[in-house]
């Protein structure tokens, strides 16, 4: 059976990991390559690198980082942050990224999703959506969740699926950073209404949250940052627990 995926997310600034990480056996916690290798050894199924600088100067540094990760890491990885052109995606994929994730740029110019899917295939196009539930309605937010829009989460998700997205990475801003669990109701609705994989993001705090998002939330994958980086939830332990709850995982 296809397994549920566990995906650590690493924030990158000028080619270095920024959010503090607390791996005892790591020589340089700021080195994305070393961190990525460590996660691969721990049984992470994929990795996401989010470039939070995304300025023009930083872009070259990120490209170089992608190349180094691809050289040394033998599991798939996605690169996101500030991607808005076919050329940029071409460069990232040529350097060895398996997928790219686009967010605000897709909202500003939805045709970008079609262009990327046509040129590189849907399998490498992840559309990330940040949304917030306001008075019972889920509204898409831009620029790292700072700019609200009137766009409905579910309508937007369906639109990008039709345009050729291969996967949706949905971050609930109501849950992100709370460690109170994922937005399972919205996630389950996405999974029911769409026919592409859904990655849950925002709210991971304990093992039960992962169990819930894979069962109640019907998510195909779960992404988290701090609970993994600070060793609060070791991935091997998490996967063993999921297995105990009859959730298919790669052990």
């Amino acid at each position: 059976m296809l397994t549920k995926r566990i995906i650590p997310c690493l924030d990158i600034k000028n080619g270095r990991t920024v959010k503090g990480v607390n791996f005892v056996d790591l020589r340089d916690a700021g080195d994305p390559v070393e961190l990525a290798k460590q996660y691969a050894d721990y049984g992470a199924d994929e990795l996401v690198f989010l470039d939070i600088t995304a300025t023009l100067e930083a872009r070259a540094t990120t490209l170089e980082m992608v190349l180094h990760v691809a050289e040394q890491v033998n599991i798939p990885f996605t690169v996101g942050g500030g991607i808005s052109s076919v050329e940029h995606v071409d460069a990232l994929l040529k350097n060895g990224a398996d997928k790219v994730s686009i967010n605000s740029s897709a909202v500003k110019r939805p045709e970008l999703v079609n262009e990327l899917a046509d040129k590189f295939g849907s399998q490498c196009v992840v559309v990330a959506i940040d949304a917030k539930e306001i008075d019972g309605a889920w509204k898409v937010h831009l620029a790292g969740g700072t700019i609200p829009t009137e766009i409905d989460l579910f309508e937007w998700a369906k639109e990008v699926e039709e345009r050729g997205a291969g996967e949706i990475l949905f971050t609930s801003m109501n849950h992100d950073g709370t460690k109170g669990g994922f937005a399972n109701k919205a996630l389950a609705r996405l999974s029911e209404e769409l026919n592409i994989p859904i990655i849950a993001s925002g709210g991971a705090g304990n093992v039960q949250h992962f169990i819930d998002t894979f069962t109640i939330g019907k998510s195909d994958a779960a992404l988290a940052a701090s609970v993994f980086h600070f060793g609060e939830i070791p991935i091997p332990d998490l996967k063993k627990e999921l297995k105990k709850h009859n959730i298919e995982v790669r052990l």
């Binding site: 296809l2 397994t3 026919n195 592409i196 994989p197 195909d220």
Partner: peptide
């Protein structure tokens, strides 16, 4: 779900 994406 299509594509099948992940570990099987």
């Amino acid at each position: 779900k299509v594509p099948q994406m992940g570990w099987n």
